[in-house]
Design a binder for these strands. Structure first.
Lengths: 337, 337
DNA sequence: AGACAAAATGGGAGGGCTTCCAAGAACGCG
DNA sequence: CGCGTTCTTGGAAGCCCTCCCATTTTGTCT
């Protein structure tokens, strides 16, 4: 262990001495607590400025038992998730709200078992005041771990097995339903779907929305294939579907990346979009404007998702008990359907 | 100020008592320091397990003056940067290395003045052991702030004015040169470029690489237009360039998003790619495979950039003085050129 | 067995802040 | 002018660890 060197930074004691008051008074000024005379308050403020004093957050955290930070945990085995701009947007939303609440953001990418353990320790050691968790596959041990610690935990998208107290989710079922209804309204008859992994809630929910739309219209859901939310898997799924049912005229893909892959596969198979086959995606990622033809897709308020998660976790930290939230999505019609 | 509730979590004292040793011994076991008998070491380990003890990182940080965390600061006025998958990849790289070094990652999106101030306080208060800074425009005050704190600071991409001690950068000049040389080798004669913002080092460097290639080939650089690294700006720039010089037959775009925009503008202008006009991008983002035709582009090791930044900051934290790094990029030839 | 070196141990002093509490100052009012 | 209130104030006790150091134990060698 390294020796502890003197820090060199001014401490609250020095500020107090410089201002001619006791440490208690100085502390009260910093936390603008009452019971400080105007004169001393100003003296302390001057001393703070003169000395360039910045409170030591660790000491404060130790005394108050508050970390001054919240964690965003993204639990994913595949580290390439972040290649998806989706998380960037969530992070931006989270960050903007936490900032207002004066909380720092600890980002935890829980890919390996080792890192999951580290996240667990972070929570158990109260290294953060609250947690936001995203992208949980199946019933992730991290979900239990988080609830066990009795820390405020907000889920982004409901985790598989559990029924969490606080979560924010996109209304995936409704979104997928609208997408499929749009295909039906366009006169499509043989509508298939490319799903996300069915061990994720998103994957399941979007698949269910697709089925609901067809069943409500008195039709039987057709074939489906499962992808992993990335472009290549979408192309592969599309190819398999075409082989199974050559008469396909509509495709609902559970996200835009896979829809883009489907577009590519269709092009390679010589089908024209939207003339022969109409395609609808989900997410409204930037890629949706770039494909040719541009993707009709379900826009989801990703940034808001992050913002609301953060707002919710802040609410819980401050002692509230906010209700779960289901954010609305809406269809953006472009050229592919 | 809220009352301090009892924490309920076991402390090191309790572990020591439970194991029948002094706190010092328990501490030594936890830090696996020498001078502990086998018997007591095991007793302490058992007590830790029995009590479910997790050390309080704040207390430790206070005592050791080490935060156990590093910050990644992304300084951008426009919060939409994160829509770009670029940062996601950097984050993934950073995260994987920090994890091995047992450091937590604090993510700071310094968009507003308020948030920049908060970042400043975080650094001054030694809330982190080291900092990585990215995407600095011009001479960002944050850059000075960081160096002033005498904290290990690694820059991702050199900041504008300064000449930092530690940085990791992509060799943008060479990359842009190769891209342009590829266009030349393809027999293109009227090669223009769509630049990034010229107050960023990336923007300038890629522009310079383009110029170098042309000058080395004994040609005079042609027209250029400036974009903001997003798709629409690329399309707009392309349109302006076509208006200026209708005989364009080659375009080097400073990133893939703008290249995708250029592709769209060219299509709308009735030019065929790569027959009439060849296009080369930069970054090799996922979008490069999706465009039609797929983009020939300069692949940069984004993940490695993050990894190397983290490795470097860890190195400095541990007392080393690593040399700056320039990561190589390479051309990926697809269909657009 | 005695002398000496080496290893093991626990006491205690920080690290920098918050907050309880008791004591002192200021003030209003009859 | 005295008494009870209400503010202000500073002392001191934590919060939970790390690490120096003096002390005790163990082990080695002659």
């Amino acid at each position: 262990m390294r020796q502890v060197p003197p820090s060199g930074r001014p401490t609250l004691d020095e500020v107090a001495a410089h201002a001619g008051v006791s440490r208690s008074v100085a502390s009260r000024v910093l936390n603008n607590a009452p019971h400080v005379s105007r004169a001393k308050r100003e003296a302390v403020e001057r001393a703070v400025r003169d000395l360039g004093y910045v409170p030591n957050p660790k000491a404060r955290a130790l005394a108050t038992r508050q970390a001054g930070a919240a964690a965003l945990v993204i639990s994913q085995h595949d580290p390439s998730v972040l290649a998806d701009p989706f998380f960037g947007q969530v992070i931006a939303g989270v960050s903007s709200v936490l900032e207002e609440a004066e909380l720092h953001l600890m980002l935890c990418l829980a890919a390996s078992d080792r890192s999951r353990k580290r996240v667990g320790d972070l929570l158990r050691s109260r290294g953060v005041d609250g947690v936001m968790m995203m992208a949980l596959h199946g019933d992730d041990p991290l979900a239990h771990m988080a609830t066990e610690t009795a820390l405020p935990v907000v889920f982004g998208g409901r985790p598989g097995g559990a029924d969490p107290r606080w979560y924010v989710d996109i209304d995936n079922v409704a979104g997928a339903r609208h997408a499929t209804e749009h295909l039906l309204a366009g006169g499509r008859r043989n509508i298939v779907t490319i799903c996300g992994p069915l061990d994720t809630e998103v994957g399941r929910a979007r698949h269910q929305g697709y089925r609901e739309a067809l069943l409500l219209a008195g039709r039987i859901p057709q074939a489906f294939e499962v992808g992993d939310f990335n472009e290549p898997s979408g192309a592969a799924a599309m190819t398999r579907l075409l082989a199974q049912r050559p008469d396909i005229d509509g495709v609902f893909a559970a996200n835009d990346n896979m829809a883009a892959g489907a577009l590519r596969a269709l092009r390679e198979a010589g089908r024209s979009v939207p003339h022969d086959v109409a395609v609808v995606g989900f997410d409204d990622l930037p890629v949706a404007r770039i494909t040719d033809p541009a993707l009709t897709t379900v826009h989801q308020p990703i940034r808001d998702l992050g913002r609301e998660m953060a707002r919710m976790v802040v609410g819980v930290i401050e002692g509230g008990d906010p209700s779960p939230l289901l954010l609305p999505s809406h269809l953006v019609v472009r050229s592919s359907a």
